[in-house]
Simulated assay, not measured.
Amino acid sequence: MPINIASLAITPQMLSLIAEIDEFKGAWRALGTLAPDRLSALRRVATIESIGSSTRIEGSKLSDSDVERLLSNIEIQNFATRDEQEVAGYAEVMETIFASFDEIAPTENHIKQLHRDLLAHSSKDARHRGSYKTNTNHVSAFDAEGKEIGVVFETATPFDTPRLMVELVEWVNKTLDQKQLHPLLVTAIFIVVFLEIHPFQDGNGRLSRVLTTLLLLRSGYVYVPYSSLESVIEASKEGYYLGLRRTQGTIRSDAPVWEPWIIYFLQSLRQQKSRLEAKIKRERLMTQRLPELSVQILELAKAHGRITNSQVVEVTGANRNTVKKHLQMLVSDNHLVQHGSGKATYYSRV
């Protein structure tokens, strides 16, 4: 059965989230006018976060600092563990996407090539990389010892997978080409159906996040390399799996329930862009040559809504008189507003 979106009700919450994300998309050209070296640094940090988070979601134990060390020596091409092999493959595929997204349409051939490259360093996966599954791969739950305790979700059968992937790829390209639906909604639906099919023996979760980045870049969301969506998902894994399950179980019904996954997906995209906004603001403050302590004070004020001299001293460890001078400077430069006087004084962002 082809992708059924007749039951998709576009709610006010969806429209509000899409509008907020698209507003940032439109403003990115102005927001992103940082020096090339700073943009490059932002992208490297985001890439490390994305690789680390996406592989940890699937069970890797490598930290972001482990990932960074591995990427610094990636030309060695000698990866001792499966975790390292997965990180290396993910890094190379991300670079391919960033460099050539305009030339990588979401076709079956390209999806298979990306899967092959994703698992390129994993000898265990050599037999099936780049090919659709030949055995069932239901999503299961495991106990602390790694023993399977039950099937969480039944994916498509190996027999049905080729047909379902043809339908999915035809749907996504037609819908995007004809602009029948907002591209963020198209991307959300594509990803949840892709994961419901689970077309490859292994690597489906990681590949779904690569494909998310690809579709977003091709739809003009060119800021995504500078802020990690994968780290947002890792930080909200319960919501991620809940949204997936609540939608996946209905996809082959007469009235799929798209809303749980779409809301989660759009909220994650909003969090991704909000993190980037905060990073850009920090970079701009630094380029204004504000002292590091002043930047820290502004971030504290943003995080807590209001701050006092004592709170800043406690958090930063700076001298009380030094903090007071920085607070006065930030007030005089219209970065902060002072409220009250004496011991009751507190400060808030303008």
Rank of each mutant, 00 (worst) to 15 (best):
I5C: 09
I5D: 10
L8N: 08
P12F: 08
M14A: 02
E20A: 15
A35L: 13
R56L: 13
K61E: 15
Q77W: 15
N78R: 15
T81L: 01
A91D: 02
M94Y: 13
A105I: 13
N109Y: 07
I111T: 02
K112L: 07
D117K: 14
Y132P: 09
T134G: 14
T136P: 12
V139E: 05
A141M: 11
F142N: 09
D143V: 00
I149R: 08
G150S: 11
T157F: 00
P158A: 08
P162R: 08
W171Q: 04
V172I: 08
L176T: 13
K179E: 08
T187F: 04
T187V: 05
V192C: 01
L195R: 06
E196H: 14
F200E: 01
R209E: 04
T212G: 05
G220P: 10
E230S: 11
E234R: 10
K237Y: 05
S253M: 01
A255M: 14
P256M: 01
W258C: 06
E259T: 15
I263W: 05
L266P: 00
L269A: 02
Q271A: 13
E283P: 07
R284T: 11
R289L: 11
Q296D: 11
I297Y: 03
T308H: 02
V315I: 05
R320N: 14
N321V: 12
L327V: 01
H339V: 03
S341M: 12
K343W: 07
K343S: 13
A344R: 11
Y347D: 05
